[in-house]
Amino acid sequence: MRVASRVVVLVRDAAGYGAALADALRPSPGLTRVSSPFDLPLDKYGLNGEKASGELVSFSDSSGSPQPFPAFLQDSLYRCARAPLLFMDVMLKISIYHLTITVSFFVLPDYRPPVAACAMNEILALISSEAPSIQPVLIVPFITRPSGCFHGMVNATKTGQLTTLHAAEIGASNEFTHLLVDGTIKPRPSLQIRSEPIQCLLEIVRVLKIPTVLLVTSGGQHQGKSSSDSDLEVLQCVGDHVAKHINLEFQRNCH
């Protein structure tokens, strides 16, 4: 089971955000999307008969040729023509971005205790053992319905949009995680993630020091907008941000 060095972890939450993101992130030209189920037994944890089940989605270069630069590098190269001093910075970013690497998604059920912690531990062990020689980076998007613990997560921006993307580097950090959090807002220390699988994942990556970026925003109805319009806006906010950094495309209507 091959796993890429860029791994997106999505949970099929009750509101449907995780599944919607998994469906809307599509291959860019030249890439293929392959999906397969997986089952990892949890007997060694004393959970006889229980399994860490889910879907592994892989995006790979079908032609074997290098993938095109992702959008954020294309924009940087364009700016270099007008500002030569940016050249060294852009070359550094290109050197750490592996243009031929594939991207993997783990689309997981909303595990409950005690399965959640054991399942996430097994999945992280799989990622570490099957990823290429370079250390994998995890991208963990999380969209939640507004609640008291997310007060302040949604703010009006200069463009009039009501969606603000928050991001935090967890575990370890590197140049790629810095790029992922660039342009976002750091979440408040009081932020609570009400998702058992994601909570367990974040605790484990802190201990193992696996480079991880948590992306958080709030869905649901915003002032002056229907719930469905607000949901589309937050999905596009997160989807566009993830897609441009891993050379995929976010498509709002995939069916």
Score class of each variant (00 low, 15 high):
M1F: 10
V9Y: 05
L10K: 01
G16C: 05
G16Q: 12
A20N: 05
A20Y: 08
L21G: 07
A24D: 00
A24S: 12
R26D: 01
P27S: 08
P27H: 07
P29C: 00
L31P: 05
T32M: 09
T32Q: 14
V34C: 02
D39V: 02
L40K: 05
L40E: 00
K44L: 08
G49A: 11
E50R: 14
E50A: 13
K51H: 14
K51V: 10
G54C: 10
G54V: 08
V57K: 15
S58H: 14
S58V: 14
F59P: 01
S62K: 15
S65T: 11
S65Q: 14
P66W: 09
P68V: 03
A71S: 13
Q74F: 03
L77P: 08
Y78R: 10
R79K: 15
C80V: 03
A81F: 06
A81M: 06
A81P: 00
P84E: 02
P84V: 02
M88Y: 00
M88D: 02
M88F: 02
M91N: 08
K93P: 00
S95P: 06
I96A: 11
I96S: 14
I96G: 12
Y97F: 14
H98F: 04
H98K: 12
T100W: 11
T100L: 11
T102E: 14
V103M: 04
S104N: 06
F105C: 08
Y111T: 02
R112E: 12
P113S: 14
V115F: 00
A116E: 06
C118R: 15
E122A: 14
A125R: 15
A125H: 02
L126I: 11
I127T: 13
E130S: 10
P132Q: 12
P136G: 13
L138R: 13
V140P: 10
V140S: 10
I143E: 12
I143Y: 09
T144Y: 13
P146N: 04
S147W: 04
F150D: 12
Q161I: 09
T164K: 01
S173K: 09
L180H: 05
S190I: 00
L191P: 00
I193Q: 11
C200G: 05
L202V: 06
R206K: 15
L208P: 06
K209P: 07
V213L: 09
L214Q: 06
S218V: 15
G220L: 04
G220D: 04
H222M: 11
H222A: 13
H222S: 08
Q223G: 08
K225E: 09
S227D: 05
D229N: 10
S230N: 05
L235G: 04
G239H: 04
D240R: 12
K244P: 05
K244R: 15
K244H: 09
H245S: 02
H245I: 01
N247S: 01
E249G: 05
R252T: 03
